[in-house]
Design a protein around this nucleic acid. Structure first.
Lengths: 66, 66
DNA sequence: ACCAAATGTAAAATATACTTTACATATTGT
DNA sequence: ACAATATGTAAAGTATATTTTACATTTGGT
């Protein structure tokens, strides 16, 4: 699964720590999702989408391997 | 988190087992998500949305308690 | 009423998300 | 170059998702 978190963060000028704080997870959780080390829960994806004012589908996309 | 899986299934006339088969998870996984017993991964949410031809946000919505 | 299919759950096992702590590297401003 | 901030990652621990097996209940058709 691909994601656009890094880009969305840049557009809102948010650090990983900022974003983590807004959503209520650890900074490492954001980093791990952003770098594809693990797949977030749907609740987390919805919260990220909410912060970025986008849909989940705009931020996360399936790949063949999924 | 709320979800509209039951309704979307009805509209496509799919049983829980049918849906599970299309996505590649167990029937109990679908049942558990549908009845709110647990929160799916974003990959699973994207696959469900794909089957229903809707966005993840149309199928899953955050609640205050999330 | 009977039968088949669909649904709701539960328990045990396994996989994976997420936290905390900690450290190393990279980036940016002065 | 220096200091501060941001990022990448790792290991150990905890919480939660998902599978498999299994059974009880419900629903729909005849």
């Amino acid at each position: 699964m691909k994601n656009r978190i890094k880009v969305e963060r840049a557009e809102k000028d948010l650090s990983q720590a900022d974003l983590a704080g807004q959503i209520g997870v650890s900074r490492q959780t954001i980093n791990s999702i952003e770098t594809g080390r693990y797949v977030p829960s749907t609740i987390l994806a919805l919260k990220l989408a909410q912060v970025f004012e986008k849909t989940v589908n705009e931020i996360f996309q399936l790949e063949e391997t999924d």
